[in-house]
């Protein structure tokens, strides 16, 4: 299983701080597009992804037990 954390407005859209799901073997891009479909998440292509607190690109493969976090960059200032 994998813990998937959502930050900022993504958390509001998903309705939870994290989800437990099985993402092992999937790439970050695959997980993003699956979540996009299921939760109608906005603009996932520019959301930053971390695996185990380390920045990861869209083609990184997720392993069993990895913690994935989605951190949307914001522009306010």
């Amino acid at each position: 299983m994998n813990k998937v954390l959502f930050f900022a407005h993504l958390r509001d859209v998903v309705g939870a701080e994290f989800l437990s799901l099985d993402a092992a073997g999937k790439t970050v891009a695959q997980l993003k597009s699956e979540l996009c479909e299921k939760y109608d998440l906005p603009r996932m292509e520019t959301v930053m992804t971390a695996i185990n607190e380390e920045f990861s690109s869209n083609d990184e493969v997720i392993h069993e037990g990895d913690e994935v976090a989605f951190i949307p960059p914001v522009s306010g200032g």
Partner: peptide
Amino acid sequence: TPCLNCLLRTIPLQGMTCDTGGI
């Protein structure tokens, strides 16, 4: 260090702003 373009690769369209999300 990496640069902002490394992280984002493209300008996010419709990023959250203080006028849309409050602050």
